[in-house]
């Protein structure tokens, strides 16, 4: 289907959760939406900006926030959610994910107990 491309080797990667680094302008460019929407999403608590909440020009976001916003925008587009529904869905998804992780841990724990 696609022409064959040789693999690219990358040894210079960046671990980026140490500090919040994306400005509102950068977030908008990466999400392909305008500031009003991101500001509205922040007001619904979909992500929490770092720095002073009252001055959007000073907001900084973590990589995880950026990925969450991109995911939120896909869900909003594909499932025609409004912002309140979107925030609610994301909270529930977070909870489901954290429960899944707990279940994994517990199943794992049970397995090791049974082996002893």
């Amino acid at each position: 289907m696609s022409p064959h491309h040789p693999p690219i080797t990358i040894s210079d990667v960046e671990v980026i959760d140490a500090s919040p680094r994306f400005s509102l302008i950068e977030i908008c460019a990466r999400c392909g939406v305008d500031q009003t929407l991101i500001i509205a999403m922040v007001s619904y608590g979909i992500v929490e900006p770092h720095n002073d909440y009252h001055i959007p020009e000073q907001w900084r976001f973590m990589a995880g926030d950026l990925i969450r916003l991109q995911k939120a925008l896909r869900l909003k587009r594909d499932l025609s959610l409004n912002l309140s529904g979107l925030a609610f869905a994301l909270d529930l998804l977070d909870e489901v994910n954290s429960l899944r992780q707990d279940i994994n841990q517990l199943q794992h724990y049970i397995k090791t107990m049974q082996q002893d």
């Binding site: 696609s2 491309h5 959760d17």
Partner: peptide, 27 residues
Amino acid sequence: ITHRTKTLNVKIPAGVTQNQHIRLKGQ
């Protein structure tokens, strides 16, 4: 528009933690 499969060999540095993000610029 076509889609193609991209293959990357990535070196993950020592000491990454759960849910941490790694950025590969321009990839």
